[in-house]
Design a protein around this nucleic acid. Sequence first.
DNA 1: CGGCATTTGTTCGTATGTATC
DNA 2: AGATACATACGAACAAATGCC
Lengths: 234, 234
Amino acid sequence: MSKYNQIYTDLLASITTERLQRGTRLPSETELMDSYQASRGTVRRAIEQLQERGFAQKIHGKGTFVLSPNPIEFQLGGIVSFHETHADLGDDVRTEVVEFTQLPLEGPLLQHIEAEPGSLITRIKRVRRIGGKRVILDINHFVADLIPGLDQAIAELSIYAFIEQTLQLQISYAQRTIEALPRSKDDQTHLDLDGQSHVIVVSNQTFLQDGRQFEYTESRHTLDKFYFSDIARR
Amino acid sequence: MSKYNQIYTDLLASITTERLQRGTRLPSETELMDSYQASRGTVRRAIEQLQERGFAQKIHGKGTFVLSPNPIEFQLGGIVSFHETHADLGDDVRTEVVEFTQLPLEGPLLQHIEAEPGSLITRIKRVRRIGGKRVILDINHFVADLIPGLDQAIAELSIYAFIEQTLQLQISYAQRTIEALPRSKDDQTHLDLDGQSHVIVVSNQTFLQDGRQFEYTESRHTLDKFYFSDIARR
DNA sequence: CGGCATTTGTTCGTATGTATC
DNA sequence: AGATACATACGAACAAATGCC
């Protein structure tokens, strides 16, 4: 691990364990230089990452202060899969694969996936249960050329873990939209809507480090279980 | 403007005007050092910001490549006020102030505003109409000590413009959550719900550059007009 | 009010390591 | 193997904001 990453990890641990509490000042840059035997630039880089990710806030002339000790809130602002977000929460979570098909890239899908028309797409529909209730319908589309070997067994576990650990691909960033839409036939079939007329749809286009898009996903949530949190900056 | 910011702005302009098209390589770090007479670190900082904000992607050993020429999607991920988001879209937008009161900071509000208990709070309720329909109910709470001189006339225009331009305060960051909640009495009174049982509530705690919170706001949206977009990264 | 110490902000120059082609 | 390009790290200097005396 790089030196700045080590400093970042140490400070992050101090914040998440609340050894450094919300509102307290971090050690100054010169203090950190001494204790880590690092240059100023290295120390500054670690602190900048804390700030970017919403854990700390630098204030000119005063210091750097702890913002939020809550790593879950941070993760929800980044790219996370369903398993990652709920694993910590101790929820009773089940996943059921209700469709696993392959189809060519054509028609309306072309508006969401930037790849060669006609490329093979792997479509997976999964229903997520929390406490027995069917609350999320995930519809994933993967570019089969980039994500080979995907099968139903993997889909029942975590696809993101497969992509990053088994295939060793680096996920870079996602373009995400959140909107409310009237329920579809699919929603009525697979979700426990309890009469709700709308669902919340989180759409993701996800890209690899080299800029190629490998995924387009719609995550359709029932209204009563939807929650999203992040930190926005000017 | 700082040097790295100048380089960032120049490159950004090249991308948004599509003089540098999606997929093309940016000038290398050494080339930029020459053309701007800047050090390596300064050039790198500008490029890092392009990457952070979703415009470019660095690839080790190859170069930096243009990702997206679309700055609007990026802005929506940051802090933006209602006026800013809809001014460009040419929507027919009206704002009506339905409540303007001052009250002491106490009770449940203490959970949302980090300020001295008992401080004076300015509460403003505004209804936003798009195309004549009442679609958003904004409930703002401002710490009166930090935002003096706020009156009903300003509330009918843009409060954020007043804060940044007239008061010359620097807005730094906001902690934001998005969730669906059952409609309240207030929602039924002020919004055209058309029978919808839920609204989408975007809550913001907004902070100044010096770390003081000056605002807590709930923005309550009807389901049929809610849309949110941003870029997430690993 | 000025002066001084502390802290972060910006920039420069240099050296070495690692990935790609 | 060599050239090119990005990644990490160090050291140094000056600027700007803050707080205290």
